[in-house]
């Protein structure tokens, strides 16, 4: 094969590759565009099924309509509350666990780490956990949505790996100067760990924002519904309703209204996504190397 032939072949392969990936990216993006298009298109355009991925007869009526609904505001508020409280609690617990158990000669370190890691492979399951949550008085309380799942073993491993990799010399120097472990954590370790704290914090926040199953089983009071639960009721109405409580939310909605609600509940994720993306690759890599 002559060199020029080969070059030509390479170029075609490259172009095909670029095109296929661009197509794949479009397929990945299409559902989002579809949602947005539906949410801002006119009633008739939606009804006749002409909407695909760009708006027809642009209108913001659907958004105006959902912002008038008190139930959406209430669900938004609840979700923001549990996301903030949950992320704070999760970060504190994960950080102290990871820091404490990253100290190499802490007596009992192996046993305690082992007890935490074991829960990755074995657990009580749905009903025993449900009974414990009920038993400690969290049933139908917002606390049930973040306290029982406050620490993720995966995030613990990521953070502990990070702490272990910090240079010991800094901590040792502070210890020799008489600083306590608490002071070392607050004044030396944490300032060096801002990127990992941001990553893990975002992981937790997205998890809480998207969590739906906990709310489904622990929350009875319609006034404590989270955004995802409310969204499910609005989207699927009675057809998918397994709880008798959903009947109140079974309103007839047009597709535009549904899709506008989907958009509103997804926008916060899209807002934090650029920050999330900056760090998560590293987080995934550390997490996949087991502790």
């Amino acid at each position: 094969m002559r060199l020029s032939d080969r070059k030509k072949k390479i170029r075609i392969g490259t172009i095909v590759n670029y095109c296929l990936l661009a197509l794949l990216a479009f397929v990945c993006l299409y559902p989002f565009l579809n949602v947005l298009a539906y949410s801002v298109s006119g009633y008739n355009a939606v009804l006749s099924g002409r909407v695909t991925f760009y708006p027809i007869d642009f209108t913001l009526d659907a958004y105006k309509e959902i912002l008038k609904r008190a139930t959406i505001w209430q669900a938004m508020k609840t979700t923001i509350e549990i996301t903030l409280l949950g992320t704070a609690l999760s970060l504190v617990l994960t950080t102290v666990a990871a820091y404490g158990l990253s100290i190499e000669d802490l007596p009992g370190r192996r046993i305690m780490s082992g007890l935490i890691l074991f829960t990755m492979y074995f657990g009580g399951g749905m009903i025993p956990t449900f009974l414990v949550v009920k038993g400690v008085g969290l049933y139908d309380k917002l606390g049930a949505l973040f306290i029982p799942q406050a620490v993720s073993v995966f995030n613990f491993i990521v953070m502990r790996t990070f702490f272990k990799e910090l240079p010991d010399s800094l901590e040792d120097a502070a210890r020799i100067d008489g600083a306590s472990y608490m002071q070392v954590l607050l004044k030396i370790v944490l300032p060096l760990s801002v990127p990992i704290l941001a990553t893990i914090g975002l992981f937790y926040a997205v998890g809480y924002w998207n969590s739906y199953f906990e709310a489904l089983i622990y929350i009875q009071d319609v006034n404590k519904y989270t955004l995802q639960l409310r969204l499910r009721s609005l989207l699927f109405g009675a057809e998918l309703s397994y709880n008798a409580d959903d009947i109140g939310a079974n309103t007839v909605m047009t597709q535009s209204l549904k899709m506008a609600t989907v958009a509103v509940s997804t926008i916060p994720i899209l807002v934090v996504y650029p920050w999330l993306q900056k760090y998560f690759v590293k987080g995934v890599m550390i997490g996949s190397v087991k502790g």
């Binding site: 539906y38 924002w209 998207n210 995802q228 509940s265 994720i269």
Partner: peptide, 13 residues
């Protein structure tokens, strides 16, 4: 990073 509720909603649409 999108919740399954949203994915199911989009899928239904």
């Amino acid at each position: 990073f999108i919740s399954w509720v949203v994915v199911a909603g989009i899928a239904t649409n």
